[in-house]
């Protein structure tokens, strides 16, 4: 998305290509306002050392602060600190949430020997249910759909008993899901689904 290259055939493309920070998505010179300064710096140093040298060199920093009065500098510093703390807190919260959220793969008996498999809780990992459902359908060559749960929220229902394969597939395809967070449940016949 950040790329602005175009497959242009016309005479000569005038478009400039701007590099955006991989951490905060802003142009690197604005990273200091993004709240994740430290990470942005590391990223830039690794990926665009030349740019890093230009933006974060001592001279550049001095020039940047010289223009402000001492008072304003202090205020800006305090502001930046607050912002960083906030960003960090949000990140920690997010990580915490990730660690706690569990994906439940439920095998539901539909009819003696027929099963459907329901996957609950994928959205906590920032996955788009609709897309995942499509992928699952392709992978297992069965029907796969996003269904609303009575208790609110949505789950993916895949036709057939694919719980074990599904478990492996999820682990393989989405690396940021820890194995311990996937739970396999067997649901007996005609039991109302209770949300996990």
């Amino acid at each position: 998305m950040a790329d602005s290259e175009q497959p242009e055939i016309s005479s000569e493309p005038q478009s400039r290509h701007v590099t955006y920070c991989g951490v905060c998505t802003l142009p690197p010179e604005y990273c200091e306002y993004g709240g994740t300064v430290k990470k942005c710096q590391d990223w830039l140093q690794e990926n665009h050392p030349a740019l890093y040298g230009r933006i974060w060199s001592p001279e550049a920093l001095e020039a940047a602060t010289a223009a402000l009065s001492v008072d304003a500098q202090k205020r800006a510093a305090r502001d930046a600190q607050k912002k960083t703390a906030k960003a960090e807190a949000a990140e920690a919260k997010q990580a915490d949430k990730l660690a706690k959220s569990v994906i439940t793969i439920k095998r539901i008996e539909r009819n003696k020997k027929k099963f459907v498999t329901a996957v609950i809780g994928l959205e906590a990992f920032g996955l788009e249910l609709k897309k995942v459902a499509k992928d699952l359908g392709k992978k297992f060559a069965t029907g796969s759909s996003v269904t609303k749960v009575p208790s609110g929220g949505e789950e993916i229902v895949v036709q057939g008993d694919v719980s074990d394969e599904l478990h492996d597939f999820l682990l393989e395809k989405y690396k940021d899901i820890p194995e311990d967070n996937i739970e396999l449940v067997d649901d007996k016949k005609k039991k109302k689904a209770t949300s996990g």
Binding site: R16, A76, D79
Partner: peptide, 25 residues
């Protein structure tokens, strides 16, 4: 803004001082 970054010449500009950046952002 991504378009502005690609074609900065195409739009009229004004400039703010350093102190105002963080408020605008």
């Amino acid at each position: 803004l991504r378009l502005v970054h690609r074609f900065p010449q195409a739009f009229p500009t004004i400039r703010i001082d350093r102190g105002a950046i963080r408020f605008v952002l």
